[in-house]
């Protein structure tokens, strides 16, 4: 029950909770962990996901339409925790559902449900004092985003306040797949590492946004600790659910994940 990346590159899998259903998300998460995911990020559906691209927007729209609540996502985290005690679990959300739920109650329930960490997309370090205090109180890891546009003084604050891992955004932009990784990602991870070292900390760095195939994962593995795969898997769930029903999604996701984590030698063929 911790965020750990025992082999490199580690794999973080993002799922929009409740798409196509909460039960399906649980089965997909378990299949993903069994296939090699180190950490599952459970995305809390929100009506106005302004940092997300079309794929996750559509997934959130479906999950919101099914009335998936923050409370349900926290209960789902508890079920996944019970089924797979070893995996890392992160609640990935926009701020407003937490504010409505109550920051303190959220912290209590997320910790009780077995989450390891929380990432709030639209909460920057400067606005996070009470959030940080609550995370500290219940022993949850606050995970902050670091962007290619973040200057060093912001990276210092992000690194100083993050626990679990630091989520480095691979490029400017919203979530969604891309053909190739830009040089932004490696440069950003290099800056984060340097700053972390100066602070005397060794927090893992995961790279996300646009990571969609085994080449991307291998590339990320050369300079970061883990890769985050989101939209590619959410899109796969959308497609397989439409074609073969929700029960086909866990198998499809497991096969996809196994294909993502090929050793680098296999890619060189």
């Amino acid at each position: 029950m911790a965020i750990r990346f025992d082999h490199k590159p580690g794999l973080v899998v993002y799922l929009t909770a409740g798409d196509p259903s909460l039960d399906a998300t649980r089965e997909i998460a378990i299949a993903a962990i069994d296939a090699g995911a180190d950490v599952i990020e459970l995305g809390v559906p929100f009506s106005d996901p302004l940092a997300d691209g079309p794929v996750i927007q559509r997934a959130m729209e479906r999950a919101v339409a099914r009335k998936t609540r923050l409370k349900d996502v926290l209960a789902l985290a508890g079920e996944i925790r019970a089924a797979r005690p070893q995996a890392g679990l992160v609640i990935f959300t926009y701020l407003n559902p937490i504010l409505r739920f109550g920051m303190s109650k959220f912290a209590d329930d997320a910790a009780a449900g077995g989450a390891d960490g929380v990432l709030v997309t639209d909460l920057i370090v400067e606005e996070a004092a009470s959030y940080l205090a609550e995370m500290q109180r219940v022993g949850l890891a606050p995970i902050f985003l670091a962007a290619p546009t973040s200057p060093d003084e912001r990276l210092e604050a992000i690194a100083a306040h993050s626990k679990g891992f630091i989520y480095a955004i691979s490029r400017v932009g919203i979530t969604g797949t891309q053909q190739s990784l830009t040089g932004d990602a490696a440069a950003l991870v290099g800056r984060i590492r340097e700053i972390s070292e100066r602070q005397g900390r060794t927090l893992p760095v995961a790279v996300g946004f646009g990571i969609s195939n085994s080449e991307h994962v291998a590339q990320v593995g050369r300079f970061a600790d883990a890769a985050v795969v989101g939209s590619a898997i959410v899109e796969l769930i959308e497609r397989t659910t439409a074609e073969g029903g929700a029960e086909t999604a866990p198998g499809a996701v497991a096969r996809f994940i196994k294909g993502l984590c090929l050793p680098e030698a296999a890619l060189a063929r």
Binding site: L95, D122, I124, Y131, L145, A147, T149, S150, R154, V172
Partner: peptide, 26 residues
């Protein structure tokens, strides 16, 4: 320190602030 400190720039009482993805902060 509370996030909603009224003395911080961009705050109107407890309201306002900056709740954006990190990419936009710079």
């Amino acid at each position: 320190q509370m996030d909603s400190s009224e003395s911080r720039p961009g705050r109107f009482g407890v309201y306002g602030g900056r709740y954006v993805p990190e990419t936009l902060m710079a």
